[in-house]
Structure formats: C-alpha cells, structure tokens
C-alpha cells in the first residue's frame, strides 16, 4: 500500500467506516497490481516468485476489506452505490500513476526500499484503524489482524533484501528519503481537490464567455451523407 487512506475515525459511523474500508480495499488492489507488474518484469526467478506471493497477499487483503465492508452494509442497510469498488477509479484517486508503475521507475534495490518503507507506514496507520474496529466491530478486527501480520512480513523481507544489497549508509539515507517522500505524497493526494476554489471561478468565467460566443453559433447537423468516405477528412480531428 503506497497511498494509505485517511482513517482517523472516532465514533462509529457505519457509512464512514465502509467508506474507509472501501478505500483500503482499493489501496490493497492497487499494490497487488504493482506487485504483479514487478513479478512479470524482473529477471530473477526467485524475486519474481516473491512478488507473485506478495501480489496474492494484497489481492487477499482487498477481499478481506471488501467482505468486512459488505457485512456492515448488510447489517446497517446502507446504500452501497457510493461504496462500491470501481477498478477504473484507482487512477483518479491517485493510488496508481496514470503513466507508469513504480517498478518501471526504480532499480530493484530502491524498489525494495520503497516497498519496505511504505509497508511499515501502512502497517502503522492500519493499526490505528484496526483498534477502531476492535472497539466497534470485533469480528472485523480479527480479520484485519491477519493483514497486519502479512504487512509486517512484507516490510521485513523487503528491507532485509534492501539492507543486503545497499551499503549501510546508503540504505539508511534511502529509507529516510522514502519516508519523507511518502509524507509529501499523502499531502499531495489529500489536497488534489482543494485548489478548486481558486481555479473554479476562473473556469466559470471562461464558460460564460464560451456560452456567449456559442449563442451566435448555429451548427447544422446532417442526418445523411451520400458518400461518407469522400466527405470525411482523415487528417482532421473535427
């Protein structure tokens, strides 16, 4: 999990809780996809197998969060439309970059540090959410505990690999750097929609201007065309 959902809930609100569960499921799914990509593209069979196992764990975590969510939805008769997991939304929510997987941009030693550092952060944040569940939904806590154990193992394996393949000092520096980067990545992701109050008035002004211009436009539409291939300009985008 490289982008961890906000989960600082206090009192039990089933809708909020399901929302966070859905975000966690999405984050787990995203890291499964990242791991699977790494498994396919690394030239070392043992490491590839490790990534496959990691991907399988992350898919499993996604299922666990989804199942807990579905149980709460049923129990509290919540509208599930806004709480359903839509794979395509992963990009817009920032869980996966639109143009690359992380493995494509990092060498394996740095990738291992990236996973290790972020799995540690995920584990810490998940503990807070797990305690919240322990208080309000004990059945769910047991399931999330299994996830916590996996995340701990993922972090340990990755960091051990990184330790063995980086010099001591460079390892320490890189881990700290990943922690700082993760911090900023979260700030960025959480503020994605916060600048709209500046831009929206500008955009609305542009819209009103376009509206005025189009007011005088009278676009004709043809319902038929006698020779479509002759009348189409292949190089034109309009």
């Amino acid at each position: 999990m490289f982008l961890i959902p906000k989960s600082n809930l206090k009192n039990f609100d089933p809708v909020r809780c399901c929302f966070v569960l859905n975000e966690f499921a999405t984050a787990e799914f995203s890291s499964a996809v990242e791991m699977l990509f790494a498994a396919k593209n690394i030239n070392d069979q043992k490491l590839s197998e490790g990534f496959i196992r990691h991907a399988l764990d992350e898919y499993k975590h996604c299922t666990i969060f989804t199942n807990i969510k579905n149980k709460i939805i049923l129990e509290y008769k919540i509208n599930k439309k806004k709480l359903s997991f839509v794979p395509n939304h992963i990009y817009n929510k920032g869980y996966i970059y639109k143009d690359h997987f992380i493995f494509e941009k990092k060498k394996i030693n740095n990738f291992a540090i990236f996973i290790g550092a972020n799995e540690e952060i995920a584990e810490k944040k998940l503990i807070t959410f797990a305690n919240y569940l322990k208080k309000h939904k004990p059945f769910a806590f047991k399931e999330v505990e299994k996830i916590l154990k996996d995340e701990e193992r993922h972090a340990k394996y990755s960091l051990e690999f990184a330790k063995n393949n980086n010099g001591f000092l460079s390892y320490k520096i890189k881990v700290i750097r990943e922690r700082i980067l993760s911090f900023f990545r979260h700030i960025y992701a959480n503020s994605l929609n916060k600048f709209s109050f500046i831009f929206n008035p500008i955009l609305i002004t542009i819209l009103i201007i376009i509206n005025l211009v189009t007011y005088f436009l009278n676009l004709k539409k043809n319902t038929s065309d006698d020779d479509v291939m002759k009348n189409i300009e292949p190089k034109s985008i309009t």
Partner: peptide, 20 residues
Amino acid sequence: FYYSIKNPLKNKDFLIHHLK
C-alpha cells in the same frame, strides 16, 4: 460540451470537468 454550455451555470460541474 456544446449541449451543456447552453446553461453554463446550471451545468457548471459537468462543464468544468469537461474543460479540465
């Protein structure tokens, strides 16, 4: 866009998204 721009204020959410 052309259909929605006839009512820029009513349809502003959609239009802003479309512009972006």
